[in-house]
Design a protein around this nucleic acid. Structure first.
Lengths: 118, 118
DNA sequence: GCTTGACTTAGAGTTAGCTCTAACTTGTAA
DNA sequence: TTACAAGTTAGAGCTAACTCTAAGTCAAGC
């Protein structure tokens, strides 16, 4: 899979994909004889997971930490598990807060609906 | 209420509060005889609402739009209601996505727990 | 063979939202 | 009354995460 195809599949610009490689988030991307990148299905999986972590508020630096652990192989399994479990707790708290904000917003909109707001 | 007191109450640095004023998000802040800012309870309410909108992903530019409508008075009530209702839809969608991410994360963590991940 | 367009790199530029610095003025406690 | 903490401004600097530019290489179609 070449750059434009991969870019379409994962819905990230070629700029972003090269940037992810530059900062070490995306490693071991294969190249063809003329130096062009060749992406695999594993790359799709990994970039999709990066996007998920990013969308749930994880910094690229932290995602890089996870990536580095992955690179170190089987002996980092529990470290990675711990990292994901901590992130899970952040996510649960975030969802809780957002629901709280939603309730408050509904109260505010209720005031507008009943014209109790000038 | 002076700057340091207000800063403590709303949990924003004095830098941030002056910045919000500079970009027009926070208007009509009173001053005492020597030019120092004097904040009111209404300022607490407004800054708290700014924080809520910001925490739910609204850009400061968009919050400024809401603020400007508010400044124009009663004839903008339905515009403001519409703006908040649109934001509510974004928030609902965001919460939906975050719950989806949580489920996927739980699947991943489950793999780690059962050591199905190397 | 020639053009066109996708690829490559290094490095510069952009954006949002702060965060800080410098230089100065004012308020307060000893 | 003197120190020093806290306030003021304009404007520079910072960080994360891109986004783009310039200059060059290479493959495919006419």
């Amino acid at each position: 899979m070449n750059m434009s195809e991969f870019s379409n599949v994962v819905e990230l610009s070629s700029y972003t994909l090269r940037y992810y490689e530059k900062i070490g988030l995306l490693k071991h991307v294969q190249r063809n004889s003329s130096g062009h990148r060749v992406y695999s299905n594993k790359d799709i999986d990994w970039v999709s997971f990066i996007k998920r972590l990013k969308d749930t508020g994880m910094r690229l630096e932290e995602i890089k930490k996870y990536a580095s652990l992955r690179d170190l192989g089987a002996q980092t399994v529990s470290d990675r598990q711990e990292l994901l479990e901590k992130h899970r707790e952040h996510l649960v708290e975030h969802i809780r807060e957002q629901n709280e904000h939603l309730q408050a917003l509904d109260v505010k909109i209720g005031l507008y609906k009943s014209r109790k707001v000038a």
